[in-house]
Design a protein around this nucleic acid. Sequence first.
DNA 1: CAATTAATGTCGCGC
DNA 2: GCGCGACGTTAATTG
Lengths: 217, 217
Amino acid sequence: MDYAGRLTAHLPMATRVLMLKSDGSVLIHSDGGSYKPLNWMSPPCSVKEITSEDQVEWVVTGKNDDTLRILIEEIQHDSSHELGIDPGLQKDGVEKHLQELLAEHPATLSAGLTLVRREFPTAIGPVDLMCRDAEGRSVAVEIKRRGDIDGVEQLTRYLDLLNRDPLLTGKGEVRGIFAAQEIKPQARVLATDRGITCTVVDYDALRGLDDPTERLF
Amino acid sequence: MDYAGRLTAHLPMATRVLMLKSDGSVLIHSDGGSYKPLNWMSPPCSVKEITSEDQVEWVVTGKNDDTLRILIEEIQHDSSHELGIDPGLQKDGVEKHLQELLAEHPATLSAGLTLVRREFPTAIGPVDLMCRDAEGRSVAVEIKRRGDIDGVEQLTRYLDLLNRDPLLTGKGEVRGIFAAQEIKPQARVLATDRGITCTVVDYDALRGLDDPTERLF
DNA sequence: CAATTAATGTCGCGC
DNA sequence: GCGCGACGTTAATTG
């Protein structure tokens, strides 16, 4: 196989699995690795088959002059199937859902915390949750599935900006809470250094706070 | 199919392609989309088959209690093949290669520029290229395939550090060059604001500077 | 349509 | 083995 597009790549002749989808896209899998093929062509693209004496060649052309040439010396097995339209995947549990759950139960982050609004708008982007604590101080919450340094930097930028707003700082400086299902040690150190509270969120426990009869799974 | 791990996901019953690799990993593909399966389990993992009256169930267990349950109502086709060890993919044209080419031809970045060394070590990581200009000033080059804000931040951190080293600043402040095949507008604004020069690199032209007889493709 | 951001990212290198 | 950054990232969301 030879690929030319964003990069140039070559695969020596070997036994592999070729998958050809109905949109013309092609996947070349080896027996291992992960779900990522060794090489591929994404749709939209078209496949042209060139048959010569003792071999078959596929020339796959994608957008932007991407080309994939596959030489087939031997076919161990060939099978074709009609799959029909796929109903699609239902996902649950990413950052958005975590945000919804925490918006419903802000007190799990810190006792006495109440929600002011979700996606609180600022000039440099929305703050995930804007809350108020028992003393009336504003609290900005940044939610991540995985808490690493980038998230702390992001929250810090928000806090810098928010603390210039007299409407928010009336009862004292705006506090920050960094909430994630997992917080990396480096992120925790940086956050602590900046006076930001780190909270590890237990997703299953949060879901348990909702009415179980409303859950699909 | 039901998946429970980092997130929870469900796939309704439909006709799909299941691929089972020798390391136990499982891929569930629909007839379209891209190379990414609808769902999967990455190695290391193990598959257990449970056969009942009128259906087959696969229970795939991965690391961290990830589980994938697949109910199979009907098998339209089943085929197994030994692929053997794969020779692997040969790549060409990513950042590493771009760095090699620019290291050979630093003057294409800025007239009179000469290379001091590649991967110049600092306490916070290596600078892609450390150069010197015609006036003897040090020039730090950060190379990206796609230039966005992160890259400018990275180069800024390097420059802050390098400018504290008297050995480098003897002939004046260390300059920065941000080189990429494509530079995002935001990145260009930020770089300019910080006195960093932006250079769009023409990969094909750079390759042309090398002896064509040395090229494999 | 371009730009921004999350991802069950995956992959590879260096410490 | 962990941490960090690139990736033909891909994919979803938003302006």
